[in-house]
Design a protein around this nucleic acid. Structure first.
Lengths: 115, 115
DNA sequence: ACTTTATTTTAGTAATAACTAAATTATCGC
DNA sequence: GCGATAATTTAGTTATTACTAAAATAAAGT
């Protein structure tokens, strides 16, 4: 159980778990979803998650496919979702800022910081 | 939630949580139950647990009393108990070895490994 | 067999964290 | 106030860990 708690103590690995929560993904697909980290680092995290018994791993061709072991993660689900909800909020916020930056709609200019 | 997971990732802090799970204890009492660590280290761990919202703290006289916040720890209870059960097993085993070493009772000798 | 693609592993670095010993703060009884 | 007790904080050390870049492994297609 120690390994599981250690594995979950890092935001990056919780982020990875979110990616493989619903459906399985290859290591490459996981890396592609995490732009700010190298493939090597992702692979290391996946190993830690696997050794802790938190993900399934399946080899097919030259790919390795990972999937969350929801059973094992059950007790931590609420803790995980707390972060994921936060991440979603941030994404939503970013999207809104993007929209605002891209195309100011009528009357938007007046919201700009003065000066 | 990150702080909670980080706080729980260390065996020492889970050990401390076990000590304050049932009833509150002073920092000194907690230290007394952990022979292999200094008072300063215990105090640091208590601060981390408190900042993560995992323990209550109460000041009385010159003592500070700590108690587990079971509500906040609910989701992690099974993970915690896994370690605690292990610790209890180890303690039980140690006690049995102690008994065996201290005073072999009647008929006990025959249980000894041969040779 | 050679090349390409997918992934893991290794060596090395920088940041973090658990710990100790010592200094500091706070509260009690005198 | 002074000394004693309880706890926290600080400075410094050592071990661990998240990371990068590069080398190694493995499967497929040519």
């Amino acid at each position: 159980m120690n390994a599981a708690l250690v594995a979950l103590a890092t935001p990056r690995r919780r982020e990875i778990l979110r990616l493989v929560w619903e459906d399985e993904r290859s290591a490459g697909a996981i890396h592609a979803a995490l732009p700010d980290v190298t493939f090597g680092a992702v692979s290391q995290h996946l190993r830690i998650l696997f050794d802790a018994g938190l993900v399934f791993r399946r080899a097919e061709g030259r790919g390795r496919y990972y999937r969350a072991r929801r059973r094992a993660l059950g007790p931590f689900r609420s803790a995980l979702e707390a972060q994921w909800a936060g991440a979603l909020d941030r994404l939503k916020l970013l999207a809104e800022l993007e929209d605002a930056r891209r195309g100011p709609r009528a009357g938007f200019r007046s919201h700009r910081r003065r000066r």
